[in-house]
């Protein structure tokens, strides 16, 4: 589904990603872990098309298409979804209104008829249950005055509405208490299928108790320096990242 080859990216001339290689197949969950500043969020941002980042080398193929050639909106329409680490507050735009426009633009791109107000509402009600989100919240301005947990639930709710093929969760667990974490993970798990894939970017192993990964990758200095299964995550939880840094540094000397 997704094939990343030798991806290099920089921001304002500073290289952040220095040759990422990653294969993601349908039905898989990949966790990307790593210490602060290792490039985890940059990878998520580059995949979603954030324009501040410049891709200097490498390629990303998503379902046979060159992802890097596409505008952010077209990536979304093709089925890539990024759950933001910091969801943006937008005063004056309600989640409901915005999402109806978004869903219908995505549907139009995929050759599906637009959802009318009634159908949209019934789909919305069904998806709301997934993340236990209240309709009142959705008629308020997008994320404005939402708690951290509400913002993250709103991200997963939007993901449910847009039905992506590839979901990228950028530190969705940061700042969540256990209850919120359980609700959010539950939503993600219910949306998984053998036709979709998930990339979970996280700093903490805790999330992976809920969203169980097939593969765990450790990102350090802009490269994937170690890959394994969920046991790797347990090891990182126990021992921290220092031993990985030491291994990498020793190897490069």
């Amino acid at each position: 589904m997704l094939s990343i080859t030798n991806l290099h990216a920089s921001i304002e001339g500073t290289p952040i990603l220095r040759g990422i290689n990653l294969e993601v197949k349908a039905g898989e969950v990949h966790a990307i872990m790593g210490p602060n500043g290792s490039g985890k969020s940059t990878l998520a941002s580059v995949l979603a098309g954030r324009e501040e980042y410049e891709v200097t080398e490498g390629e990303v193929v998503f379902q046979g298409k060159d992802l890097l050639e596409l505008a952010p909106e077209d990536r979304a329409r093709e089925g890539v979804f990024l759950a933001f680490q910091y969801p943006v507050e937008i005063p004056g735009v309600s989640t409901t209104n915005f999402l109806r426009t978004a869903v219908n633009q995505v549907r139009e791109y995929r050759g599906l008829p637009a959802l009318d107000a009634v159908k949209f509402l019934s789909v919305m009600k069904e998806k709301m249950k997934l993340v236990e989100i209240d309709q009142k919240l959705l008629s308020r301005s997008l994320n404005e005055g939402f708690s951290g947990g509400e913002k993250k639930r709103n991200e997963i709710f939007q993901m449910a509405m847009l039905e992506p093929t590839l979901s990228i969760l950028d530190e969705t667990d940061s700042g969540l208490d256990i209850d919120a974490l359980r609700i959010v993970s539950n939503g993600v798990n219910k949306l998984k299928s053998d036709k979709t894939a998930t990339i979970v970017v996280t700093h903490y192993q805790r999330l992976l108790d809920y969203i169980v990964p097939d593969y765990v990758h450790v990102l350090y200095n802009g490269r994937i320096v170690k890959s394994g299964t969920k046991e790797l995550a347990m090891e990182l939880e126990e021992k921290g990242y220092d031993w990985i840094k030491e291994e990498v540094n020793a190897a490069s000397v």
């Binding site: 909106e73 979804f81 937008i90 915005f98 978004a102 633009q105």
Partner: peptide
Amino acid sequence: EALFYLRARGLGK
């Protein structure tokens, strides 16, 4: 940032 957020959800620029 708001513009990117909306576009990342499928809205045209």
